[in-house]
Design a protein around this nucleic acid. Structure first.
Lengths: 191, 191
DNA sequence: GATAGTCCTGGACACTCGTCCAAATCAATT
DNA sequence: AATTGATTTGGACGAGTGTCCAGGACTATC
């Protein structure tokens, strides 16, 4: 189970990838062994050879995707010069794509499922708290007045807004950007 | 189906109530006909007599509870005098109870399930947009500078924060209250 | 080429699911 | 008391589920 040869790792990854792609489509509970096997082009029996159980498969697939999601989509904006610009950039970019962005749907499916899976909850909570800390440090560095309040509020607001936007694709991010702008303004004295 | 006698309505309500109480416990997909029947103290067969299908039962139960939730928990704060106080009151009250508040868990279960159920999506989107409008009107009345930005940001931030708090009960609402306070400050000229 | 270890196949197992229905029960009217 | 309609019962049906396993195939080592 520890040292997995290349060939085995390949089908294992195919299985995990298939599960991850299914979560947003059919929901957490809809990810079944047969469906995963079919999408991965793999025999149903082989799933339990590479991954212990379906619950564990869902957990592995979700946690991996979520970690990547935060790294890719949020951290990219931190290379911006101005916090206000960065916030607008994050939101515009997140709203640019489909409102049914698979990565977002996977995130929300997992967040809700985590309430019934302690291991998953721990994994996601770690990713979220790391995200908050990164934002906090960056805001502090950029001379934002209240970096902690800014990081917590921003994380929560984006999270909630995107969740609501999955229900109503026409939801306009502009008021939110306006609302968040003063929060991330630099202190007057900052160079 | 329209004019339901008293006796029938009674068991029908027992069924719906049982379903609503199960959603936060076992998740959207975990609400099965047998479980609902057991909790309602009712024969499994009778569910399809009073409610068409299990999907419809879940939808009915969820939509009703969510409408009530917004009415009870949010509107109560609008009788406050000061918007800043009201925001703090809403958050403190929502964070006072269990972080696994059944009503909140039901809301998030339903929000996620709504992505795979057009009817449910429409119902919840209506409740949410009504909530935003109520907040907007109240903020405008109270002389908040940017009522629309305030309403959208507040709704999103609270929604997201509470979702994250279901994962991490120790999450402190204070930074969020700090972050939202300037957003709902009255215009200087307001009496 | 034989052997050993890894990987895969196909099918079985026991279970739960949503839905349906004929028959039994109940309530109220005639 | 008889009749009629609404309500409830208990069980059945087929489909789908997670999990497991005996064996086949495949690959690298000796």
């Amino acid at each position: 189970m520890n040292a997995v040869p290349a060939a085995g790792a390949s089908t294992r990854e195919k299985i995990i990838e298939a599960a991850a792609s299914l979560i947003p489509e059919v929901g957490w509970g809809g990810v079944t062994s047969r469906r995963v096997a079919e999408r991965a082009g793999v025999n149903p029996g082989v799933i339990h050879y590479h991954v212990g159980s379906i619950s564990e498969l869902r957990r592995i697939a979700a946690a991996g995707k979520i970690r990547m999601f935060f790294l890719d989509r949020i951290n990219g904006a931190l290379s911006q010069q101005d916090p206000t610009v960065a916030v607008e950039l994050i939101l515009r970019s997140l709203c640019a794509g489909d409102s049914h962005d698979p990565e977002l749907l996977l995130l929300y499916e997992s967040l809700v499922a985590a309430n019934r899976d302690a291991q998953l909850r721990t994994d996601i909570a770690a990713s979220l708290s790391q995200l908050r800390r990164q934002l906090h440090d960056w805001f502090a560095e950029q001379g934002v007045a209240h970096p902690l309040a800014a990081a917590v509020t921003l994380t929560a607001a984006i999270d909630g807004f995107l969740l609501q936007r999955t229900l109503d694709p026409d939801l306009d991010p502009t008021p939110l950007i306006e609302g968040l702008a003063p929060l991330v303004k630099r202190r007057p004295g900052h160079l």
